[in-house]
């Protein structure tokens, strides 16, 4: 099977290049990650992140034939040859398919992604109705792979100021949690032409999310909450 892979090693390369590979796969190689591991067996200089190989850790996000996705759950049977693989767009490349994700995580951290509740803790669990818990579905499952944020033009232009779809999805995850008491501070944190309102509902995030989540919907909900508290 034929692959064309983005290569760049700051130690040895003056500029990035595309390298072609034509490799013999084993019948057990079903996912793109299997193929990349196979390539690495032959050429150990190819660098990429990978861990769980089942789509829950979010390590192996990359741009596959022009579209962001996780290599470990992209079936080889579904991709067109030659498979063009590049690092996630919009973030600085460290080496080959490995990008510097600091900016992405900084934005995630900026929404204070942890439960805030100053009421003394009960002896047992805080109660939450199944319906209230259901509000968190489609939010808490995010694996922070950055497929969404790095496919978002608004994030490309302003990664330092726009929280991005992943961060905003997590911001809403806590806004939607009935146990969280910091709603007003959270909304203050986001009411900003850059942090939240750079989202122009392009919806690339929804299109690429490997977990089928919908950040645009979450962003809409945040705006709705802001309007409600204003009027």
């Amino acid at each position: 099977m034929r692959f064309s892979i983005y290569r760049y090693n700051p130690d040895t390369d003056a500029a990035p290049r595309m390298q072609d590979y034509d490799i013999q796969l084993e019948p057990t190689d079903r996912m793109l990650l299997d193929a990349l591991v196979r390539i690495k067996e032959h050429d150990d200089t190819l660098s990429l992140r990978r861990s769980c190989r089942e789509g829950v850790c979010g390590s192996d996000a990359m741009n596959i034939n022009g579209r962001n996705g996780l290599a470990c759950i992209t079936k080889l049977a579904d991709v067109k040859e030659p498979v063009v693989i590049r690092p996630l767009p919009g973030l600085p490349v460290i080496r080959d398919l490995i990008v510097d994700m600091s900016q992405f995580f900084k934005q995630y951290h900026s929404v204070k992604p942890y439960l805030q509740n100053d009421t003394p803790e009960p002896e047992k669990e805080r109660l939450q109705s199944p319906a209230d818990r259901e509000e968190l579905n489609g939010l808490y499952e995010c694996i922070l792979c950055a497929c969404c944020s790095t496919s978002c033009p608004s994030f490309w232009w302003n990664p330092d100021k726009f929280v991005g779809p992943a961060g905003l999805l997590q911001a809403y995850r806590f806004l939607a949690d009935t146990r969280d008491e910091a709603t007003s501070e959270r909304l203050d944190n986001l009411e900003d032409p850059y942090r939240l309102f750079r989202c122009h509902s392009i919806m690339n995030c929804v299109d690429v999310c490997p977990k089928g989540l919908n950040p645009t919907r979450a962003i809409g909900k945040i705006k709705e909450m802001m309007i409600k508290r204003t009027v």
Partner: peptide, 8 residues
């Protein structure tokens, strides 16, 4: 981190 309080 606090927003600029406008935009909405």
């Amino acid at each position: 981190v606090v927003g600029a309080h406008y935009g909405l």
